[in-house]
Computed example of a mutant assay.
Amino acid sequence: MATDAKTEKRALRAEIRQRRRSHGELQLSEHAEHLSHHLRELVVAHGATRISCYLSGEFEPSTRPFLSWASDAGITVLLPVTREDGLLDWVVSDGESEHPHELGFPEAIGELLGPIALGDADLLIVPAASIDLEGYRMGWGRGYYDRTLGSMADRPPVFAVVFDDELVGAVPREVHDERVDGVVTPSGITRF
C-alpha cells in the first residue's frame, strides 16, 4: 500500500511540476496578486502578528508580494531553513537575504532560531504540491513539513498555498502525511 502511494505521489508531483512550468508570466502575476490578497485576509482574520511562511520559487504560487506586505505591516515572518537531519530551522525575514538551496528552491539567510521558534507563531503558511478536500497535504517528498507539523503538540492554524487546479478530491496518502486547516488559492480561502 505504502509503495503504491509513493509511486502515485511521484507521478503526481511530476505532473504538477510540468503544469506549473506551463503557466505564463501574466497568469503568474495575476495569481500572485490574488494570493497576496487572500493571504492578507487570512492574517487579518486570525489577528496574526507572528507567522511562518516560505520563499516561493520560480514556478510556485508566489508568496513574494504577500511577504512584502507583511514586512511593511510590521508582521514578524519566520522563514524555513532546511537541516541535514530533516527538520526545519527558522529565521526572521529581513525581506532580502536568501540564496538558492542545492535542491533548487530559495532559502532564507539569517540567525537560526531553531525548530522551537515556530511554537510562538500565530499562523503557519506552508507550501504544497497538492491538497485534497479533507485537508491532506501532499508535499514535494522531502518530509520537512510533515515532520515539523507532526512534532507540534499545540500548533496554530496551518494553511497551504497551491494553484486552483491543485485542490483536488483526494491525494495519495501515507501514514506520516499531515492535514492542514485550510488552503489558499488564487480564487480564495478554503477551510477544512
Rank of each mutant, 00 (worst) to 15 (best):
S71P: 00
G57N: 13
L55E: 06
S52R: 06
R50S: 06
P61W: 01
V43I: 07
W69K: 10
C53W: 04
R50G: 02
F66M: 09
S68D: 15
R64K: 14
T63V: 05
D72F: 01
H46G: 00
S52D: 05
D72Y: 07
W69R: 07
P65E: 13
Y54R: 07
H46K: 09
C53I: 01
E58W: 00
S56F: 08
S56C: 03
R64V: 12
S71F: 05
G47C: 04
S56M: 02
P61G: 06
E60G: 08
A70E: 09
L67M: 14
P65Q: 11
I51Y: 07
R64M: 12
S56N: 04
S68K: 15
H46R: 12
F66C: 06
S71M: 11
E60D: 14
S52Y: 01
S68R: 15
R50V: 13
E58M: 09
T49P: 02
F66G: 06
R64S: 13
A45I: 00
W69Q: 11
W69P: 08
P61D: 00
E60K: 02
E58L: 14
V44L: 13
W69C: 10
A45S: 15
R64Q: 14
A45N: 12
D72S: 15
S68F: 13
L55V: 02
S56H: 02
T63R: 05
I51F: 10
R64C: 01
S71H: 14
F59R: 12
A70Q: 08
L67V: 11
A70N: 09
E60Q: 09
A70I: 09
R64E: 14
S52C: 13
S62C: 07
P65N: 11
I51K: 09
P65V: 12
T63D: 02
T63E: 05
C53G: 14
D72L: 13
T49W: 13
P65I: 13
G57Y: 00
A48I: 05
H46C: 07
A70D: 08
S56G: 06
A45K: 12
V44H: 04
I51N: 08
D72N: 11
S62W: 09
S56P: 04
S71R: 15
E60Y: 03
S71C: 05
S68P: 01
W69A: 10
S52F: 04
G57E: 05
F59P: 08
C53M: 03
I51C: 11
P65T: 11
A70T: 08
S56W: 06
L67W: 09
S68C: 07
W69D: 10
D72P: 00
S62Q: 14
C53S: 15
R64L: 14
T63N: 06
C53A: 15
V44I: 14
R50L: 12
A48L: 09
L67Q: 11
G47P: 00
I51R: 04
Y54H: 10
R50I: 11
P65D: 12
A45F: 00
P61K: 01
W69G: 08
F66K: 02
F66S: 04
S68A: 15
F66D: 03
A48V: 05
